[in-house]
């Protein structure tokens, strides 16, 4: 079946099967490979995209359901070749190592800062507890999200 949606603002039309997930379609049909498959069970958050404004595990969304959806992925973060403040903060705070979980963390962090521009440590933890990272030990990720909030506050 043919579905239509937007990815990072670009309209797309794609033929999907019911047994494909949104993650399958993004990665293997549209080659939007920022979202990663880390478990396929909604347990690791590496496939997190912002779906109609909310962070969700794209591995748990059946592709046909995405008809009409607005989807935002890590590929949409940079504007005019410039890094988003969240990306800058992740680099400055060394908030990643292998990088495989990073696209998912960036999506969860962006969605958090959009609904809550000045989150507490507890709120950051709650928003990011669905994103697993085996490299960093997470403390720099918390710092990076705080720093991003400061940067975004300063810019708006």
């Amino acid at each position: 079946m043919v579905i239509k949606f937007t990815i990072n603002g670009d309209e797309m039309e794609v033929d999907v099967k019911p047994n494909e997930t949104l993650l399958d379609v993004l990665r293997n049909k549209l080659f939007v490979t920022g979202p990663k498959e880390g478990c396929g069970n909604g347990e690791c958050g590496a496939c997190t995209v912002i779906y109609n404004g909310k962070p969700m595990n794209s591995c748990l969304i059946l592709a046909p359901e995405a008809d009409g959806a607005e989807i935002f992925t890590v590929e949409g973060l940079t504007k005019d070749g410039k890094l988003h403040p969240i990306q800058e903060a992740f680099i400055e705070e060394n908030a990643f190592q292998c990088g495989f979980c990073t696209p998912g963390f960036l999506m969860s962090a962006k969605a958090l800062l959009e609904r809550n521009p000045n989150p507490s440590k507890e709120e950051i933890v709650e928003a990011l507890s669905g994103n697993l990272c085996r490299c960093t030990g997470y403390d720099t990720i918390i710092k990076a999200v705080k720093k991003a909030a400061e940067k975004m506050g300063a810019r708006s």
């Binding site: 909604g42 969304i61 928003a127 507890s129 669905g130």
Partner: peptide, 9 residues
Amino acid sequence: VGAYQTRNR
């Protein structure tokens, strides 16, 4: 229940 992402669904 689950993670923030999960609770969105």
